[in-house]
Design a protein around this nucleic acid. Sequence first.
DNA 1: ACCTGAACACCGTTCAAGT
DNA 2: ACCTGAACACCGTTCAAGT
Lengths: 224, 224
Amino acid sequence: MDAMPEARTLRVDAERNRRRLLDAALELFSERGLDVGVGEIAARAGVGRGTLFRNFASKEDLIAAIVGERMREAAASGRELLDAPDPEEALFEFLQQMVGQQQSDRALFDAVHDTFLANSEIAAAYAELVGVIEQLVARAQAAGVVRADLGALDLIVMVKGLCEAATALHHVNPHIAERQLDLVRAALRPAAATEPLRGRPPTIDDFKRAFPAPGAAAGAAKAS
Amino acid sequence: MDAMPEARTLRVDAERNRRRLLDAALELFSERGLDVGVGEIAARAGVGRGTLFRNFASKEDLIAAIVGERMREAAASGRELLDAPDPEEALFEFLQQMVGQQQSDRALFDAVHDTFLANSEIAAAYAELVGVIEQLVARAQAAGVVRADLGALDLIVMVKGLCEAATALHHVNPHIAERQLDLVRAALRPAAATEPLRGRPPTIDDFKRAFPAPGAAAGAAKAS
DNA sequence: ACCTGAACACCGTTCAAGT
DNA sequence: ACCTGAACACCGTTCAAGT
C-alpha cells in the first residue's frame, strides 16, 4: 500500500485554511461563546466568509469538527491511563482531566448532548470515548473499588452534568469541580451501595436513538 | 393599607395580553426549544409583535419572566415539604420534583446558570428557592441522614447538572433521572463520607459574583 | 480547484401611525 | 395608554465573478 498519494497542487493551501479556521473558531468560541459571528471567525483566520462555508457545510458543522477533535484527544489520554497501576486513581484522574478540558472549552461542550450527537463525526468520536471509559470502569469494578451496578454511561451523565453546572462558578470558587468529583467518588463507593440503582444503565443505543442522524429515518423511503 | 388601587381603565386588557404572551411562549418553548421566533409567539398569543416588546424588553426578558415564575412555584412546593415527617424523604421528594419540572421545561432551565442569573427577577426567585433547599438539607443533616459537610448549593449544582444531562435521554430511557438521583443519594450518605469534601461549599455570593447584574459594576461611577 | 465579497433570507427590535 | 405592522439592523448562507 503506497500510503498517501502525492499532494495535490493547491490542496495544501486549502488544508492550511481549514486548519486556520478551526484554530480561529476555537479561540473565539472559548473567549466569547458560540455566538461569535462567522464573519469574525473568517476574518481572524484571514480568509473570506465563503471559504468557511466551502470547508464546513454550516456553522454547526464547524463546531462539530472542533468538538470531534477534542473527543479524540480525550480518548487517547484515557487509553494511556489504562496502563496506570491503581485502577481507582486511574478512573478519577481521567474524570478530572475531562472536567478540566470541558471547563476550558465550556461553550463547545454545552451543545454536545443537545443536538450535536446527531452529527456522524461527533457520534463516532463519542463512541470511541465511551469505549475507553467502559474499560476504566470495568477495571475499577474488578478491583472492587467501584459499585458493580454502575454503567460507564451512568458516570458520563453525572460528570457531563457536573461540568456544565460547576464551570459557571469556577472563576469565583475554583475548587467546586473538585468538590463535585468528591461527591461522585462517594456515590460510586461500594459501601454507599446500600440499595441497587433503579432502572437500567443507559447504553450507547439510547444515545443514538435520542439523537438520530438526519436522513437515517426508519421505514419505507418514499420517492419525493 | 387599602390593598390594590382600583383597576385602571384599559390595563386589564394589557394584563391579559401579558398573560397570553407568557402562556404562548411557554407552550412553544416546551414544544420546540428557545429558538422559536418572537413573531410566532406573538401570533399564538393573538397580539402584534410590538406588544411583546411593550411587555418585555427583549426575548431574553420574556424567558426570564417565565423561569422566575417556575422558580417561585418550586419554592412554594418545597416549603410544604418542610412539614413532612421524614426529613430524608422530604429532601429527595423535593429533588425528584425539581428534576421532573426541569424535564418538562428543559429549554427554559438550560439557560439559567448560563446568563439569566444576571436578571434581577430571576436572581430574587433563585435566592428564595435556595433558602428553602437550605432548610430541607439542614433538617436532613440534623437527623443524621445526610453528610454534615454538604452545602445546599453543592446539591443544587449536582442536581442541576444531572437534569441537563439526563433529560436528553429521558424519552429513550425513562428511569435515567431516577438512577442519577439514586447516585446522588449514595453520595450524600454519611457512611460514604470517608474523606471530607475538598474546598468550601459554594455560596449565593459565588453565584452573584459569577453573574453580575448589568449596570452594577463596582468602583467609582464615571459620568458618561 | 479554490477564493472572495456582494446579495439574499431570516429574525430580533424599533417606531411612526393608528385607536 | 395601548396596539399594530412596516421598516431597520444583524447574521448565517449562497453564488456569480474572479484567480
